[in-house]
């Protein structure tokens, strides 16, 4: 009766413990924002990319630096500006006078964790270059394909204010992100702790991830991703995810619903959520817990809802309230 796949239960529990350690190490540097840390870890485990939306100064860079440090991974950051060129992201070939040959200079995407800050400030051409890298996980320079070292994860950020002079990401490209994470202000206690931590025994306000220790290495992360991908998903749970996605297409208030990629994202992220919760199987709860983050950037609200000031989150909450959870 047990339909468990290749990975043993012990293996899964060990993986789950490792993930918990990762979480607690990141939490040492990033005070509060527990939900955001969880969702970033889910995306990492599911080998996806995330789009983080929030006002500046909420610790997005700190989060990425801390995450990179926990698995001794490399980290780079690109500040997207209107004059950023695709080659600034991916890299380019340059003529070396000494060797009289073209040499390839790799761009900042050749890293484990890439923070694409304010991705909507760069023109469509540059955005497309990055999104292609995210999808293909390889870069072609001078006709030569160069694969990125796994694990590779992009954390793109967007600012909900100051929309002037930006190039909003088209829906088709938003689809490439596994989750869209909303980062909000910390609550009072968390903020107090944060301010205290940052200002004690420190010169300036530089990002400090000294307290975060490396728990695993990049290899381990790849293993964790494999374990995640092998978690048991009952057909009823898959059906539940598909039902949610299909419902977005008929729901009043949503003019364009999520495509099949939405359902795929829900299952991938649901598996990672289950591992994060210490389970070796996926339950409808796991799917429901990441459904909003997994779908909010894949739907387009109808103009009436936009005018009424409804957000995708409230619409999706109502929608989830109407989809029957699976039972026998």
């Amino acid at each position: 009766m047990n339909m468990n796949t290749g990975v043993s239960t012990e293996h899964i529990h060990a993986a789950s413990e490792t993930v918990k350690k990762l979480r607690s190490e990141i939490a040492k540097a990033v005070v509060g924002q527990g939900r955001v840390i969880d969702q970033v870890l889910i995306a990492l485990l599911a080998s996806g990319h995330v789009l983080i939306e929030g006002v500046p100064g909420l610790g997005k860079t700190l989060l990425v630096r801390a995450l990179a440090k926990t698995f001794s991974g490399t980290f780079s950051r690109i500040q997207f500006t209107p004059d950023l060129m695709p080659s600034d992201v991916t890299g380019h070939a340059m003529y070396d006078l000494k060797s009289e040959s073209f040499k390839i200079r790799k761009g900042p995407v050749f890293t484990n964790l890439l923070l694409a800050d304010e991705i909507n400030r760069a023109p469509a051409k540059t955005q497309a270059a990055l999104l292609e890298v995210m999808q293909e996980k390889q870069v072609t320079i001078e006709g030569k394909p160069l694969a990125l070292d796994p694990p590779f994860m992009t954390l793109a950020t967007q600012n909900p204010i100051e929309q002037e002079g930006t190039y909003p990401l088209p829906e088709a490209q938003l689809d490439r992100f596994l989750l869209k994470i909303m980062i909000d202000y910390p609550d009072q206690n968390e903020e107090y702790k944060l301010v205290h931590n940052v200002t004690s025994n420190q010169i300036g306000d530089a990002i400090n991830v000294d307290e975060t220790n490396a728990v695993v290495n990049a290899e381990h992360i790849i293993n964790l991703q494999k374990v995640t991908a092998d978690l048991t998903v009952d057909s009823r749970v898959s059906e539940y995810a598909v039902n949610i996605v299909r419902q977005t297409r008929n729901w009043p208030g949503i003019s364009v619903g999520a495509g099949p990629r939405g359902g795929i994202a829900l299952l991938r992220a649901g598996r990672a959520a289950a591992l994060l919760n210490g389970n070796d199987f996926v339950t409808p709860d796991d799917i429901k817990s990441i459904a909003i983050a997994g779908l909010r950037h894949r739907i387009i609200l109808s103009p009436e809802m936009e005018i009424e000031g409804q957000t995708p989150d409230t619409i999706l909450e109502n929608l989830l309230d109407s989809v029957d959870a699976p039972r026998i």
Binding site: M1, N2, M3, N4, D234, R236, F281, R327
Partner: peptide, 10 residues
Amino acid sequence: WQMAAYAHRL
């Protein structure tokens, strides 16, 4: 119940 239903472990 979840274990039996979704993980197929009795």
